[in-house]
């Protein structure tokens, strides 16, 4: 059992507060992705769990054991780094077996485990080579194999795919997911790539300015963003926002249109995903500005009463810049945010 509990972790670098009192529980064998823009503190949090960084405050528990005062080697973790960190003076075999040798494991057991993980990562042909003779993708396979060979309770990954080219990343992503699902380890995966996060995660923790703003399943994060930041960060293109003014109990005026909404009595923001819009006879009136045919669909950037507004439409439609379109939002996909607290309003 390797449940990870992060209790009230804060990190300050001088006067700069990198992490604000983070609380997070990651259950055993869960695949947790820390997602956020660069500088949001996601790598710092991961490095605190790994023991490569000391928290200014708070505790880290793994499997019911407090570990934040222990050196990295005593935490039962293994880590995969962004730039692979494959030891250049050792062969692939010795790289994968490095941690096992440090545990003074008998030779035949080391061989057995190295061969098994090498096979798992499809690098069994390369075990005699040095890192200088490997491609980036092969090095990352070695790095993952080296971590898996330790059979750790927790595997930590810091943007492991971001140095690979797009096609290789896609391939490795699917492979990682399969391998980790079989390994029964708890995984924490740091990335700034939302597609990677959505595809890999059991749960995503969206981080922003040193805080976790939402920790939920990928679908929940996508459909029901807890904060305006999440709505504007997740999704490509992200959600559209329009100011909304209350008319009477549960009735809202959005860009001159009447909409049903929450029964609040202050100005809110209306939000809708670009793909949740249908062309209709009545609805939001938008003037098309830029039309981008993307093959699978048509991305139209419009203006609704001066606010930028994007719609993802069927690629069969013909839309010209300057044309006026009328959109009907799917009623059950409309979300509302409080502009003062930035939180979602039900």
């Amino acid at each position: 059992m390797a449940e990870i509990q992060i209790k009230n972790i804060a990190k300050r670098f001088g006067t700069y507060q990198a992490l604000h009192n983070i609380d997070l529980t990651i259950s055993d064998q869960e695949f947790m992705v820390l997602l956020g823009a660069s500088g949001c503190g996601k790598s710092t949090l991961l490095r605190i769990i790994a023991g490569l960084e000391t928290p200014s405050e708070g505790e880290v528990w793994i499997g019911g054991r407090r570990i934040d005062h222990l050196p990295p080697k005593d935490r039962g973790i293994a880590m995969v780094f962004q730039n692979y960190a494959v030891f250049p003076h050792l062969t692939v075999f010795e790289n994968i077996g490095f941690g096992l040798r440090m545990q003074k494991m008998p030779n035949d057991e080391v061989t057995r485990r190295v061969e098994r993980t090498a096979e798992l990562m499809h690098i069994e042909q390369l075990t005699g080579r040095y890192s200088g003779e490997l491609s980036g993708g092969q090095r990352q396979r070695v790095a993952v194999a080296r971590a898996l060979a330790m059979e750790p309770d927790v595997i930590l990954m810091d943007e492991p795919l971001s140095n690979l080219d797009a096609l290789l990343r896609l391939e490795m992503r699917a492979e990682l997911k399969g391998v980790l699902a079989e390994s029964n380890t708890t995984a924490i995966y740091v990335t700034h790539d939302q597609v990677e996060a959505m595809s890999l995660a059991d749960r995503i923790s969206v981080m922003h300015e040193g805080r976790i703003v939402q920790a939920a399943t990928p679908v929940e994060v996508y459909r029901n963003p807890a904060e305006r930041f999440v709505a504007s960060f997740i999704g490509n293109p992200p959600m559209n926002f329009l100011p909304a003014t209350p008319v009477k109990g549960g009735q809202w005026s959005v860009a001159g249109q009447m909409m049903d909404g929450p029964s609040a009595n202050k100005a809110l923001e209306f939000a809708i995903r670009p793909e949740d819009l249908k062309i209709a006879d009545s609805g939001l009136t938008a003037v098309a500005k830029v039309v981008e045919p993307l093959g699978a669909h048509l991305l139209v950037t419009c203006a609704v009463e001066g606010h930028q507004f994007r719609a993802v439409l069927d690629s069969d439609l013909v839309v010209k810049p300057g044309e006026t379109l009328t959109f009907a939002p799917l009623a059950d996909r409309v979300r509302w945010f409080d502009p003062d607290t930035q939180k979602a309003v039900a």
Binding site: P72, K73, I77, M79, F81, N83, F87, P88, M102, A143
Partner: peptide, 27 residues
């Protein structure tokens, strides 16, 4: 020598000293 090599060694069971002798020193 990238610091990540040392950090990787630490997470793989090395102390600061053994990471130095096993990874940094040979390099």
């Amino acid at each position: 020598i990238p610091i990540e090599l040392e950090e990787a060694a630490w997470t793989l069971g090395c102390t600061r000293l053994t990471a130095f002798t096993k990874v940094v020193f040979p390099l």
